[in-house]
Amino acid sequence: MFTTGDLKIKSRVDQVGIEERAASLSKRSIKKETKKAGIKLAISMIDLTTLEGKDSAGKVEAMCQKAIRPLDPSTELRVNDDIPSVAAVCVYPNMVSIAKKALAGTNIKVASVATGFPSGLTPLPIKIEETKRVVDMGAHEVDMVIDRGAFLSGEHKKVFDEIVKIKEACGPAHLKVILETGELETYDNVRMASWLAMTAGADFIKTSTGKAAVNATLPVTLVMLETIRDYWYETGRMVGMKPAGGIRTSKQALQYLVLVKETLGDAWLSNKWFRFGASTLTNDLLMQLVKESTGRYQSLDYFTID
């Protein structure tokens, strides 16, 4: 169990220090084999996401094809390496069954946002009901959002209890808890919310909905990774991490992998424990991978936009 006081004690982060550390890690030079391996690892960690009001079955089906086979192996740009599938697709509840069908027979997971995404401001029974529905429809993973208003006004117990209830409603499905760090503003809050979510049962903690003004950043992710590490030391339970929103380039993705490697080590360097929530990252990873193989800088004209 948790108390607010305990969380506060565990939640001291110096802004300048954490930002300097993140900046320093972001300068790691990733070249050659490391770069190729990193890019492939990153592709395998993607939660390929579409979360728009205009999402349709056609859009989701197309995205699922990209998820299965990110690059056409018959293209002239074919790289000798095997290109992995992404880890999951992430959609709104109404699209779960469509995605399920499109991904049948693959290992790609279906993740659905729930709990009144992106604000998290629907009544708890409805959040529970929504969660149960998406799990019933076959979602392997549920991306819930916390009630930031409650968190910021000090109602930590309320946030905690909601997560506990949603975790129950998930049954066998994995629960990712979105903290919406851009709205929590301080690193102390990010760390506190991370502890809170993990203590309440989160399988993953996730930075953002992608709908706020500020989404995933390196220092925020570093704070969350360090909290995961400390939680693991304290409880022995591994929790996964998912930065989401604003990660569009290979360079960024590799910087995130550096954070994982140097904060949590080898055990977390897999899509079981680390995901990217992204919609356009895939193509840049592919372009950089092809560039590494061919020595030619690439054009987006040769990569499918789905």
Binding site: D14, Q15, G17, E185
Partner: peptide, 9 residues
């Protein structure tokens, strides 16, 4: 004596 302290939140 010179003292340094970060400016942050």
């Amino acid at each position: 004596k010179t003292t340094w302290h970060p400016i942050g939140i």
